[in-house]
């Protein structure tokens, strides 16, 4: 009995799920590609017209660019807030660590709608921010925080912060603490230690977190529609509107494939860049 045939026999328990995936995952995706190549919603005439329509339409291109920008901005914000949080976590004792773990996991496990709802209460017209600013006399009239780009970035930053904090904490705890001490002992200031020792050595964790946050923020339909409001149109709601609303199935299919390609493309590109960067570091 050869090694490979043994390997194949061991695979038998995976067979039911493999069959389910072929029928309910692979075939539908092939169908999605096929449907995106039809000219009209009645599935007549094969042609790449849907993709050309997307590329020639400034509105559609804008929606895609905005969605990508949103993902990148939120990833950057979580990075700026996540590093200090992870540094404090790594430097604290058991009890504070348990408290911080709870604090990080609770929003991660609470339903997305609940977290989004909290931001409606905070940013709304009668919300906490407006009430505070008005009562302090800092603002004359309530500001429009809900249904604004800044509000959306802020809400998504809080909602996705755990996805950044967890991998960052993980790689900070793996870091040899003596390296930072050695650098400080040799006279480096703490800013310098952070940027020349800690940051480069924990970059894989930061990249992993960044990719998770980017993908989650770009596809966060609920938060985008409720906090962003009707005037900020992003890819998920665009796809929803073109499919369930207008029922233009071929265009919706093309949109979702373009969106998928964009998300996976950016995730792969950043992943590859970071591998290159870390390799360069080892060579140096």
């Amino acid at each position: 009995m050869s090694d490979t045939s043994r390997g194949h026999r061991e695979l038998a328990p995976a067979l039911p799920l493999a069959l389910l995936f072929v029928v309910a995952f692979v075939l539908p995706l092939i169908a999605l590609v096929a449907i995106s190549l039809y000219r009209t919603p009645e599935f007549l005439d094969l042609s790449p017209v849907q993709y050309l329509r997307f590329l020639r339409d400034p509105f559609s291109l804008r929606v895609l660019a905005d969605t990508v920008m949103l993902g990148l901005e939120v990833a950057l914000c979580t990075l700026v807030l996540g590093y200090p949080l992870a540094l404090v976590y790594a430097a604290s004792g058991t009890i504070l660590r348990i408290a911080l773990t709870f604090l990080i996991l609770l929003p991660l496990l609470t339903s997305t709608v609940v977290r989004t709802f909290a931001w409606i209460v905070i940013l709304g017209r009668d919300g906490i921010v407006n009430a505070t600013m008005l009562s302090l006399g800092l603002w004359d009239s309530p500001a429009r925080l809900l249904y604004s780009w800044g509000g959306l970035v802020l809400a998504l930053t809080q909602i996705q912060l755990p996805l950044m904090a967890l991998p960052l904490i993980n790689s900070l705890l793996r870091l040899d603490g003596n390296l930072a001490k050695a650098a400080e002992g040799l006279g480096a200031g703490r800013f310098r230690v952070f940027f020349t020792v800690i940051l480069p050595l924990t970059l894989p964790g930061a990249i992993a977190g960044g990719l998770l946050v980017f993908a989650a923020a770009a596809t966060a339909f609920i938060t985008q529609t409720l906090v962003g409001g009707g005037r900020i149109i992003l890819m998920p709601s665009y796809i929803y509107q073109q499919s369930m609303g207008v029922q233009d199935w071929p265009f919706a299919a093309a949109l979702s494939l373009i969106f998928t390609a964009a998300v996976i493309g950016i995730v792969t590109a950043i992943g590859a860049l970071s591998r290159l960067a870390t390799r360069g570091q080892h060579a140096a």
């Binding site: 995706l29 999605l32 596809t219 796809i239 929803y240 979702s256 969106f259």
Partner: peptide, 11 residues
């Protein structure tokens, strides 16, 4: 993205 998959299954 889960939307792409769900749309494909719906279609």
């Amino acid at each position: 993205p889960a939307m792409a998959f769900s749309l494909s299954l719906l279609l």
